[in-house]
Structures are given as C-alpha cells and as structure tokens.
Design a protein around this nucleic acid. Structure first.
Length: 259
DNA sequence: CCCATTTGACCGGC
DNA sequence: GCCGGTCAAATGGG
C-alpha cells in the first residue's frame, strides 16, 4: 500500500505519461506548438519527484538542545549516519540525467568533492543550504557515471524539513492537479531542457547506446559504493541505467491504488 | 567584504 | 592502510 504522497506521485507520473503520449501523437502529426504539453510533462515529473522526496518521515526531534554548544556535539561518522538512516527509514532517491540538476527546486551548498575509487569521475557532495539554521538533514551526491553521452547520477538522502519545502508541499497539497510550478527542472536553461527531455521520452534510443558492460559496471559501482537500498521500496528493484526510466511503462507493477 | 566553492586534511569503519 | 564522507581553511567572484 502506497502512502498518500506516493499515490500523488504515481498520479503525477500517470499525468506525465498521458501528456507524453499526447505529445508523441502531436509530433507524429507534425503539430508544432507543443510547449504547454512539454511544460505539463516536466511539471508532472517534478511533482512526482517532490512527493517521493518529501514522503520520507521526518527525523525525531533532537534529544537535547545543543545548537549553542556545537563544540560538544560529536561528529557523526558516515557509517553511523548510514545506520541512523536505516533505523529512521531515511530513503535515498536516485536520479540519472544527462546533466546534473543544478536547480532542482532546493537550495544546496556544496561541501565536498572527492574522487571515488570505483569511478573515474569525481563525486560532489551537497547539503541543504538551510541545514544549519533549520536543521534540515537533506543532502545529495552528484557524480558523473558515464561519458558520451554524459550521464550524472544524483542521489538524494534524507528529507527537506526546511521552510522552503514546507511551503512547496503546502502548495502541492492544496491542489495537485493545478500544475503549480514547484520544482522546475526545465528552468535550468532552455538548452538543458532540450537535452533532458529526450532522455525522458526516448528510452529505447538510449538503451541502444549503452552497452551491457557499462550498465553492469554502473550497477557494480552502486554495490561498491555501499548505496543504501530500501528493501520495501520497489523503486529500487529496477535498474537505474541512464536509458531506463522505469516510471512510465513499469508503473503498473507498483502497488498503486487509484484515488 | 561577504559568501559560495574548492581542496587538502581528517575521521571512523573495515 | 584503504576507503568514502565530512570538515574547514583557502580561494575567488560579485
């Protein structure tokens, strides 16, 4: 059984699927003005992502007030943080795209960059810009996983609890179908929008461009990197290769109950 | 001068 | 000792 947010995410994805199919038919007929449809599709995906990210339960309140005496706060080790994530059910959302999503609707602050042994590309570490003042524990990692075409993997960890997200969520809950401009991936810039869109709609094309060897390498890399896999999330049971966006055609296998 | 980014150092687990 | 993740001083742009 999906949560309320998950159901909204699925509904948004289905809306995007319908618009994509409509767009496809229009393109086949040579109909040119399809910008509004593209906007709707992008909004749908953005909306779905927002629900998936924001559906993670919030962390428990701090045991004691210690913000004024950070010197006495022991630093959480990565392993410890991972265990905490597992215990608290913090999910990771992973997204592959042709270019890193610089503007995904949230304010991030880069705090590190490292070369990973299992990848020739560097991995960038970001945390919510409001991590300090609003105790927002959301973070993300961005890493290029493939060249030609350039594919970047963004792994979101934790949930935004900052005011920015609460405002967004409030708007979304008020009217999911209104097409509110929550996370506008298409506002990165026009050129990027044109580059990202084909990835979403031309699955077969990209699958042909990625050899199985590369995909195996990517999957093995995930294992090597100790990515947290959420067992009860069927989202993760699907391979996230750059050319395989499972959202659309495979959505029926999810425990989806139409509202 | 402020602030975000960069980058080498550091930490803890294995 | 290696590794990924984080810290924090240095740096650079506006």
């Amino acid at each position: 059984m999906l949560s309320n947010d998950d159901q909204k995410a699925v509904a948004a994805l289905l809306r995007g699927q319908g618009c994509a199919n409509h767009l496809k038919s229009l393109i086949e007929k040579g109909y040119v003005p399809t910008e509004s449809l593209v906007d709707t599709i992008l909004d749908s995906f953005s909306l779905a992502l927002s629900f998936m990210i924001s559906s993670v339960p919030p962390p428990p309140p701090p045991q004691h007030e210690s913000s004024s005496s950070q010197d006495h706060v022991p630093k959480k080790s990565p392993k410890l943080k991972k265990k905490i994530c597992e215990r608290e059910g913090l999910k990771q959302y992973r997204d592959d795209c042709l270019y890193p999503l610089v503007n995904d609707g949230f304010s991030w602050r880069k705090y590190g960059q490292k070369r990973i042994k299992t990848s020739p590309y560097q991995r960038s570490y970001y945390r919510c810009a409001y991590a300090g003042e609003k105790n927002c524990n959301a973070s993300k990692r961005v890493q290029q996983i493939q060249d030609s075409p350039s594919v970047h993997r963004t792994t979101y960890v934790g949930k935004h609890i900052c005011e920015e997200v609460r405002t967004y969520s409030h708007q979304l809950n008020d009217d999911v179908s209104s097409g509110s401009k929550m996370i506008r991936f298409d506002k990165i810039d026009q050129d990027m929008s044109e580059l990202v869109m084909p990835q979403l709609v031309s699955i077969d094309h990209h699958q042909e461009t990625i050899e199985d060897e590369v995909k195996d390498q990517i999957m093995n890399q995930e294992c090597d990197n100790n990515e947290l896999v959420v067992d009860d999330d069927q989202f993760w049971t699907y391979p996230f290769s750059p050319g395989n966006c499972m959202f659309l055609d495979d959505i029926s296998v999810l425990d989806y109950i139409p509202s």
